[in-house]
C-alpha cells in the first residue's frame, strides 16, 4: 500500500511530503508516525511540506492532529518549507494552523528541535539533582 516514508535521525523523525495527499494517505501517516514516536522514543518530528502545492482545511487539521498527539507523547513537531502562495492562501482562508510550530527550512526546524530537546534534558537533570540534595522540587 502507498505510504509516506518516515526517516529516523537520532532522536528525531523526518517526514517529507512530496505527493498530493489524499485522505486515506493522510490518516495512514498519522497512525504510522504515532507508532514510530513510541517505538523509538523520539523527541521531535520535522515535517517538510515544501512539496505540497496546497494545504486545505483537511491537511491543516491533519498537521494539527499530528502536533497534538506528538506533544502528548512528549515529542515536539515543526512544520517546515511552506510555499509562499500556500501561506497567503491559508491566512485568507482563515486557517492559521494554531498550535503548530513552523520554520522556513529543514535546517532551522532541526535547530528548534535540538534546542527543545536540550532544554528538556536540562530539566530532567535539574530534577534529579534536587532529589539527591534532599530538597523538594518546586
Amino acid at each position: 500500500m502507498e505510504h509516506i516514508p518516515i526517516l529516523r535521525m537520532g532522536e528525531f523523525l523526518l517526514i517529507t511530503v512530496q505527493v498530493d495527499m489524499h485522505d486515506r494517505l493522510a490518516m495512514k501517516l498519522q497512525d504510522d508516525l504515532t507508532e514510530r514516536i513510541v517505538r523509538f522514543g523520539s523527541r521531535g518530528v520535522l515535517i517538510d511540506i515544501s512539496g505540497l502545492e496546497i494545504v486545505d482545511s483537511f491537511i491543516g487539521r491533519m498537521l494539527g492532529n499530528i502536533a497534538s498527539v506528538s506533544r502528548i507523547l512528549d515529542a515536539e513537531t515543526v512544520v517546515v518549507g511552506m510555499q509562499p502562495a500556500v501561506a497567503i492562501t491559508l491566512v485568507e482562508l482563515g486557517l492559521e494552523l494554531p498550535g503548530i510550530r513552523t520554520a522556513l527550512s529543514v535546517e532551522r526546524g532541526m535547530q528548534i528541535l535540538r534546542r527543545e530537546a536540550e532544554l528538556a534534558g536540562l530539566e530532567v537533570l535539574k530534577d534529579a539533582n534536587m532529589e539527591e540534595d534532599g530538597n523538594p522540587p518546586e
Partner: peptide, 17 residues
C-alpha cells in the same frame, strides 16, 4: 498567477470535500 492558482485549487478542494 501562482497565488491565484493556489487559492483556486484550495477552494476547489474545500468545496469538493
Amino acid at each position: 498567477g501562482l497565488v491565484d492558482q493556489t487559492k483556486l485549487v484550495t477552494a476547489a478542494s474545500e468545496i469538493a470535500r
